[in-house]
Each structure stands twice: as C-alpha cells, then as structure tokens.
C-alpha cells in the first residue's frame, strides 16, 4: 500500500497544464467549425466556459470574503452570548 501514500504531484501538474492549453485551442477550433449546439447566444462567445469558470470562481471567493467580514464571528459566538441559556442546563 506504500505506493498509495505518495502523491504524484509533478506528473499531475504537467498533465493539468497540458489539458488547459489543449482545451483553449480545441474550444476555438470547435467554435469556428460550428461543432457546438447551445441554447443561448452568449454561450457562443469565444472561450465562454473557460472565462466563466475562472472568473466565476474568483468572484465567488472575493464576494464571499467580503460578506464574511460581517458574518464570520468567533467560534463560540452563541455560547458566549447566551451562557447556560441556550436551552440546555
């Protein structure tokens, strides 16, 4: 089982970058070859899904972090606010 415990880092990274670049090229080619069948016009934008994934992910994290400034509290927030009074003795 020892082979399982080593995480094949470098190979995975190389594979990842390869697939990333390949997908960009393929997307452009397929778009010009009219191989896609979508329902909405905006989906036909060049590299729409790549941009959507990348910026959607970043926006999600950044906006949530912004909201987090207001709603993330210390771990025992409720316990501290209501000592012995949360319904349990």
């Amino acid at each position: 089982m020892h082979w399982l415990r080593i995480y094949p880092k470098r190979t995975l990274w190389r594979l990842y970058w390869g697939v990333l670049v390949l997908s960009l090229i393929l997307d452009a080619l397929a778009l010009y070859a009219h191989a896609f069948h979508y329902h909405f016009k905006f989906q036909y934008t060049l590299e729409f899904f790549a941009l959507f994934g990348f910026f959607g992910c970043m926006l999600l994290i950044l906006i949530a972090k912004g909201i987090g400034l207001f709603i993330v509290k210390e771990e025992d927030y409720y316990q501290r606010r209501a000592p012995q009074e949360n319904g349990v003795q």
Binding site: Y16, F49, G53, F54, G56
Partner: peptide, 8 residues
C-alpha cells in the same frame, strides 16, 4: 469550465 475553476 472545471479546469479553469481549478486555476481560479
């Protein structure tokens, strides 16, 4: 989309 989510 997922590949680029990973990048983000």
């Amino acid at each position: 989309m997922f590949i680029f989510t990973f990048l983000g």
